[in-house]
C-alpha cells in the first residue's frame, strides 16, 4: 500500500458488502484504501460483470461479480484489465500499480551500452501466496543495431520468451509483451514482428500449494525456467540463446476472513455475524 501512496495511485475495492461490514474489515486489516459498498449490486450490474452463474435465489452468493480489476490512467481511461477465469486466482498489486502508472514495460535505465544481448529475470514481489499472481519480468538489453523477435515468428527463428519449467503446483498464464514494430524482409517480402532495442517481457505466475515446501525458514516454492531469444541485425542472425533461471520465493496461503479457525485467518472483523446479516437481509424480502 505504501508504494501506491508514494506513486499517487489510488486504490478502490468494491463489493456487494454492507458499509458496516467494510468498516469492520478495514479496522481488522488496517486498510487505508477505499472500500466501496454496492449492497444491491447496482454498480456490478452496470459494469456488466454480475456473476450470472449464480441464480437470484441462491443466498447470499447471488450478487457477486465475476471478480477482476481495472487499472486506469489519470484521464480515467482503462489501460489494463485483470480478470481470471479461476476465482482462486487473482492479480497481485504490483502488476496493477505498474499498469496504472504506464510503467509495465519500462526498461530501467542502464549505465553502459551492451556488446551482446543480456537478460535479467526478477519477480515483482518477494512473496508468492497461493492463487495470487506475480509477474516474472525479463529485461533484455540489446546492442545498438540488433533486434529481437516477438511472437509469432516463422520457422527457423526464435521469439524472445520466458518459459517455466514443468513444476507440479507452479502455474503460468498468458505472457504479456509490449507492441512490436514490423520489419519487412527485402528478399522474401515476409513481415516479422521485432523489438528494436531493449525490451521487457512479463509472465504471470502463481502456485496452487502443491509446489510449496515447508522448512525451518517457513514455506517457499522454487520457480525455475529459461529465457530464450535470438538476436539479428540487418545482415545476419545470431544463434538462438537460452539462459536458465531459478530462485526461491517465500510462499504461503492468502489471508482469509474470520469465518472459522485456521492459519492466516484474521479473527477480528466479526465475519460470521455479518454473514448472517447478509442472509437475513436477502431472505426477509
Amino acid at each position: 500500500m505504501a508504494s501506491y501512496r508514494e506513486s499517487g495511485v489510488r486504490l478502490y475495492a468494491i463489493s456487494y458488502d454492507e458499509a458496516d461490514a467494510l468498516a469492520d474489515y478495514a479496522a481488522a486489516h488496517q486498510a487505508t484504501f477505499t472500500l466501496l459498498s454496492d449492497p444491491d449490486s447496482e454498480v456490478i450490474e452496470s459494469f456488466g460483470i454480475l456473476n450470472t452463474l449464480i441464480p437470484p435465489d441462491e443466498h447470499p452468493w447471488y450478487g457477486i461479480p465475476f471478480p477482476g480489476a481495472y487499472a486506469i490512467d489519470g484521464d480515467g481511461m482503462v489501460v489494463a484489465k485483470f480478470f481470471e477465469h479461476n476465482f482462486a486466482v487473482r492479480a497481485g498489486p504490483e502488476q496493477m500499480l505498474a499498469a496504472a502508472l504506464g510503467q509495465d514495460f519500462d526498461v530501467p535505465a542502464s549505465a553502459e551500452p551492451v556488446q551482446k544481448v543480456t537478460v535479467e529475470v526478477a519477480m515483482d514481489g518477494e512473496y508468492l501466496p497461493m492463487g495470487v499472481t506475480r509477474h516474472l519480468i525479463a529485461t533484455f538489453r540489446v546492442p545498438a543495431g540488433q533486434h529481437l523477435y516477438g511472437a509469432p515468428v516463422p520457422d527457423g527463428l526464435i521469439a524472445a520468451s520466458i518459459e517455466l519449467d514443468d513444476i507440479d503446483g507452479v502455474l503460468s498464464y498468458e505472457p504479456l509483451a509490449p507492441p512490436t514494430s514490423e520489419l519487412t524482409l527485402s528478399g522474401s517480402g515476409e513481415t516479422l514482428q521485432v523489438y528494436d532495442g531493449d525490451v521487457v517481457l512479463r509472465l504471470p505466475v502463481t502456485q496452487n500449494a502443491r509446489a510449496m515446501v515447508k522448512d525451518d525458514e517457513g514455506r517457499h516454492v522454487i520457480i525455475s525456467g529459461r529465457v530464450r531469444w535470438q538476436a539479428c541485425n540487418d545482415v545476419e542472425c545470431f544463434l538462438p540463446e537460452s539462459v536458465p533461471f531459478s530462485f526461491r520465493a517465500d510462499a504461503g496461503f492468502p489471508v482469509l476472513g474470520d469465518m472459522g479457525p485456521g492459519e492466516g485467518r484474521v479473527p477480528a472483523m466479526n465475519g460470521a455475524a455479518h454473514f448472517q446479516k447478509m442472509i437475513d437481509r436477502r431472505t426477509e424480502q
Partner: peptide
C-alpha cells in the same frame, strides 16, 4: 482528483 487508480471488484470482505 486526476490521479491514476486501480479499481478492484471482488466477491466479498465477509466470506
Amino acid at each position: 482528483a486526476g490521479q491514476p487508480a486501480v479499481v478492484v471488484f471482488y466477491r466479498s470482505a465477509v466470506w
